[in-house]
Computed example of a mutant assay.
Amino acid sequence: MRRLPSSGDWKPVGRPQPASSYPGHKPGSDDHSLKFSGPPERGGEEEVMAISGIDELTPREREVLELLKKRLTNEEITTELVISLRTAETHVANVLQKLGYKDRHELWRDIVS
């Protein structure tokens, strides 16, 4: 079961914080390259794919992108991030638009190739 953040985990509303200040941020993850696991028939080796527009994503949209890469549905994203379905749909639409994809299938095609 997913733990809800305690009141000490929340940041005050105001100026955006750098990604490194968010809980769960991994140092070195700001290199703006996305790592995708290869298909099983290729042995699952790591591939690196640079996507233009990734600098425009908010930290939350980057979380959504990571879940999209795992091929999660909007409903699964709502469960994972504890957000409403409408919020998940908005985040997904924003991610795809900022990265220049018309739908998640186009993103997945780039991941596989």
Rank of each mutant, 00 (worst) to 15 (best):
P5C: 04
P5M: 03
P5Q: 01
S6E: 07
S6K: 09
D9H: 05
D9G: 04
V13W: 05
R15T: 08
P16W: 04
A19W: 10
A19N: 08
S21D: 09
Y22E: 04
Y22F: 13
Y22M: 03
G24S: 07
G24W: 02
G24E: 01
G24I: 03
G24L: 05
H25V: 04
K26F: 02
K26Y: 01
P27W: 05
S29N: 03
S29Y: 00
H32V: 01
S33F: 05
S33K: 13
S33W: 07
K35P: 03
S37Q: 13
G38Q: 11
G38I: 01
G38S: 15
P40G: 01
P40C: 02
P40Y: 00
P40R: 03
P40I: 03
E41R: 08
G44C: 10
G44N: 12
E45S: 08
E47G: 00
E47Y: 06
I54A: 06
I54N: 00
E56D: 07
E61K: 04
R62I: 05
L65G: 04
L65P: 02
L65T: 06
E66I: 02
E66K: 10
L67S: 10
L67M: 12
K69G: 15
K70A: 12
R71H: 13
L72E: 02
T73D: 08
T73N: 02
N74F: 00
N74P: 05
E75N: 05
E75C: 03
E75V: 15
E75D: 13
E75L: 15
E76G: 12
I77N: 05
I77T: 00
I77E: 03
T78P: 09
T78L: 13
T79G: 14
E80R: 13
V82D: 15
I83P: 00
S84H: 05
L85H: 14
R86T: 11
R86L: 07
T87R: 11
A88K: 05
H91I: 01
V92L: 11
V92R: 15
V92F: 09
A93M: 08
A93T: 10
V95G: 13
L96H: 15
Q97T: 15
Q97P: 06
K98Q: 10
L99V: 10
G100Y: 13
G100F: 09
R104N: 11
H105D: 15
H105A: 15
L107Q: 08
W108G: 03
R109W: 07
D110N: 11
D110K: 14
I111A: 14
I111M: 15
V112D: 14
V112K: 10
V112F: 12
V112Q: 12
V112P: 00
